[in-house]
């Protein structure tokens, strides 16, 4: 009984480590293609459009509702200490440091990791990946590297836009519902916000973008057969990307802000 339990633990740890190793090797090889020609500019631009531009509505809507709810909560919490005036600065700090990158990253994981995994998985199942190889094109260079680069560039930009929209959501609620003076709200937002608050969130965005594209590509390239295989790859990519984003967020927050 105990032996079986130990064997189970051992097997799980081994397969977990093997999986982590495979993902790491995959990532290293894919990144190495970014510095070795040929480069596929067209694929990069199309990935930039797919991952960045087309995610704007989702990230923007997430940010505006989050900022709005945040303002209400902080107002209610602040009222307990007669500190309602902290709403503008706490909303700004909360959005830029934490909620902008994390919720933005999670929404991008849902939208982009799934679509990348499903697209590449389907290409694998329909032999399009094999066809690429027979046409002298490395799938890692042609499919994976452009998506990784596009995500690392566009997700921080999305986070930046999300920050602005989130703060705007807080301002909207502050002015319309909580009777803040508009000019005072904006002044308080600026006054206590530091550059590092924004920069740290944007750096997190770059890391989350890398995670999203890497998980989408990895599970797509390793998709099983048939519709079921692609479905499983898509699901796993989204789950893995989301968990890794939350874990990476904790680690990065420790690195950036722990005393």
């Amino acid at each position: 009984m105990i032996a079986r339990l130990l064997a189970f633990i051992g097997r799980s740890v081994l397969s977990g480590l093997a999986g982590a190793g495979k993902v790491t090797l995959f990532a290293i090889e894919a990144v190495s293609h970014l510095v070795r020609p040929p480069f596929y500019g067209r694929e990069f631009l199309s990935a930039l459009l797919q991952i960045g531009w087309l995610s704007l509505p989702v990230v923007g809507l997430t940010a505006i509702f989050t900022g709005a709810a945040l303002a209400l909560q902080i107002y209610a919490g602040g009222a307990r200490f007669s500190a309602e005036s902290v709403v503008p600065s706490i909303v700004a700090i909360g959005m830029t440091r934490e909620l902008g990158p994390v919720l933005g990253g999670l929404m991008v994981a849902a939208r982009v990791a799934s679509s990348i995994a499903a697209e590449i998985g389907t290409m694998k199942v329909t032999e399009q990946i094999d066809a690429l190889v027979t046409l002298s094109t490395d799938p890692l260079k042609y499919l994976v590297a452009p998506r990784l680069l596009a995500a690392v560039i566009s997700v921080p930009l999305l986070v930046g836009v999300g920050d602005v929209i989130g703060v705007m959501g807080g301002w909207l609620v502050g002015v319309e519902r909580l009777n803040f003076n508009s000019a005072t709200y904006i002044r308080n937002t600026w006054q206590y916000l530091e550059t590092w608050d924004v920069m740290s969130g944007i750096l997190k965005g770059a890391a989350f973008g890398f995670i999203v594209a890497l998980m989408g590509c990895y599970y797509g390239m390793n998709s099983g057969r048939g519709a079921q295989g692609v479905g499983r790859a898509t699901k796993t990519a989204v789950v893995a990307a989301s968990i890794l984003i939350l874990a990476a967020n904790y680690v990065l927050t420790e690195v950036f802000f722990s005393k």
Partner: peptide, 26 residues
């Protein structure tokens, strides 16, 4: 050159871009 069982055409590219795939790259 290889003709795949399900043709394995790249569905994000048009017909001529599929045919010219190797000619446009490498």
């Amino acid at each position: 050159g290889m003709l795949f069982q399900g043709a394995a055409l790249f569905d994000s590219l048009t017909v001529w871009q599929n045919v010219a795939f190797r000619l446009l790259r490498g």
